[in-house]
């Protein structure tokens, strides 16, 4: 199949057949911010941070979940897009309880990073401040619903890579919650293999590893991962 030829931000680019707009852009050095996207997982189009405009289209489309087509003329950074992205991040920040200074992922968080990238210095919406729980029933890991942005990276990595499908999403809208098995405490889950992929995939401090210093993701530092493996196999 011939390569696709399209234009992104006025730059002519080519992409392999089947590539998404995001892949085409990144392969050509054009960076589009993402949040729910994780390389290797099937796109969910959950966060809409990566929206772009396709000339002739009625509304913006998510770059991570839209196939590139020959002849597309794409804009990634119009004023309208920037404003929409900013609004999305502000709504995410207003929805749950994101107190960065007391979060285990402070300075390593992808939500914080996009907020910084978009220059968000305050949130224009009222904070919902919902009453949420923290599930620390698992021997090694914890889930803090206060920090969850419902990107479903944990759900997808557990299903598509580990093949366990421990995680799912219950309910809709602001009532949505990540659940393990049929909403049982994580520690009692019969399907969880304890692999920790969800913890690695989670972009925020929602999923964390207990008893590790620093980022609470453990393997952001390979040294620490090795140390942990050695401890496990001893």
């Amino acid at each position: 199949m011939p390569r696709l030829k399209l234009s992104i931000d006025g730059i002519p680019v080519s992409a392999g057949p089947g590539a998404t707009i995001l892949q085409a852009a990144r392969a050509n050095g054009i960076d589009i911010a993402t949040l729910c996207h994780l390389k290797g997982l099937i796109p969910a189009g959950a966060c809409r941070i990566c929206i772009v405009e396709v000339a002739g289209g009625r509304r913006p489309v998510p770059a991570c979940a839209t196939r590139a087509e020959s002849g597309m003329v794409i804009t990634t950074a119009s004023e309208r897009l920037q404003a929409a992205r900013r609004q999305i991040v502000e709504l995410l920040l207003a929805e749950r309880n994101h107190q960065c200074p007391v979060c285990v992922m402070n300075n390593n968080c992808e939500l914080q990073a996009v907020a910084r990238r978009f220059g968000i210095d305050h949130v224009r919406y009222g904070f919902i401040a919902p009453t949420l729980t923290v599930d620390i029933s698992h021997e090694r890991f914890g889930l803090d619903h206060n920090r969850c942005i419902l990107c479903r990276r944990c759900v997808r990595v557990c299903d598509q890579v580990e093949g366990a499908h421990t995680w799912d999403v219950r309910a809709r809208g602001t009532a949505s919650r990540i659940i393990s098995d049929l909403a049982r405490p994580w520690g009692e889950s019969g399907s969880c293999t304890g692999c920790g992929k969800c913890v690695q995939a989670c972009p925020t401090g929602a999923l964390f590893e207990k008893d590790v210093q620093g980022t609470r993701k453990g393997t952001l530092c390979l040294e620490k991962l090795l140390e942990w493996r050695r401890r496990r196999t001893r």
């Binding site: 309880n97 107190q99 200074p101 210095d121 305050h122 904070f127 401040a129 919902p130």
Partner: peptide
């Protein structure tokens, strides 16, 4: 000028809001 996270978003001072 809002100086610091408590003025900007409630932050640690706002930790009581959820309960």
């Amino acid at each position: 000028v809002s100086l610091g996270d408590c003025a900007v978003n409630g932050n640690v001072s706002g930790l009581r809001n959820p309960i």
